[in-house]
Simulated assay, not measured.
Amino acid sequence: MPLMRSLAGALGLYLALTAPAVMAGPRVVSADGAITETIVALDATDLLVGVDTTSHYPPQVVGPLPKIGYLRALPLEGVLSLKPSRLITTEEAGPAQTIERIAAAGVDVVQLPVARDVPATLARIERVGELVGHASEAQTLTGRMREQIEAVQATMAGKADARVLVLLAAGDHGVMLAGRDTAADALLKTLGLANALPDVNGYKPASREALLVSRPDAIVIAEARPGEFRADQWPGLTQLPAWQNGYHVAASAMLLLGFGPRLAEAMQTVANVIPDANASPATTAHAQ
Rank of each mutant, 00 (worst) to 15 (best):
M1D: 14
M1C: 09
P2Q: 12
A10H: 05
G12N: 06
L13P: 03
L15G: 06
L15A: 08
T18M: 10
P20G: 12
A21Q: 14
A24M: 12
A24G: 13
P26I: 08
P26V: 07
S30W: 06
A31M: 10
A34Q: 01
I35P: 08
I35G: 04
T36D: 13
T36V: 11
I39G: 09
I39K: 13
V40H: 02
V40M: 09
A41S: 15
T45A: 13
L47W: 05
G50P: 08
T54C: 03
H56P: 01
Y57D: 09
P59H: 12
V61C: 06
V62C: 08
P66M: 05
G69R: 08
L71Q: 15
A73V: 06
A73E: 12
A73W: 04
P75A: 15
G78N: 05
L82H: 13
A93R: 01
T98R: 00
A104Y: 07
A105L: 13
A105S: 14
V107A: 03
D108K: 15
V109G: 07
V109D: 09
V110A: 12
Q111S: 10
Q111Y: 02
Q111F: 02
V114N: 05
A115V: 08
D117I: 02
V118A: 11
V118I: 15
A120F: 05
T121C: 03
R124M: 11
E126N: 09
V132R: 12
A135G: 10
A138E: 04
A138K: 01
Q139A: 12
T140G: 07
E147R: 14
D161L: 06
R163Y: 00
V164G: 00
V166F: 02
D172C: 04
V175A: 15
V175F: 13
V175S: 07
L177R: 03
R180Q: 14
T182C: 10
D185T: 07
T190R: 10
T190I: 12
G192W: 10
G192H: 10
G192S: 13
P198W: 15
N201L: 14
G202P: 05
Y203I: 04
P205L: 08
A206V: 15
A210N: 11
V213K: 10
E223K: 00
P226I: 00
G227R: 00
R230S: 14
D232C: 05
D232F: 06
Q233W: 10
Q233A: 15
P235E: 07
P235G: 12
L240Q: 13
P241A: 07
P241D: 04
P241Y: 05
A242H: 03
A242S: 13
A242V: 01
W243E: 00
H248R: 14
H248Y: 14
V249A: 01
A251D: 04
A253E: 03
L255P: 03
L257R: 02
G258S: 11
P261C: 14
E265C: 07
A266K: 00
M267H: 06
M267W: 00
T269V: 08
A271K: 00
A271Q: 00
I274A: 04
D276K: 01
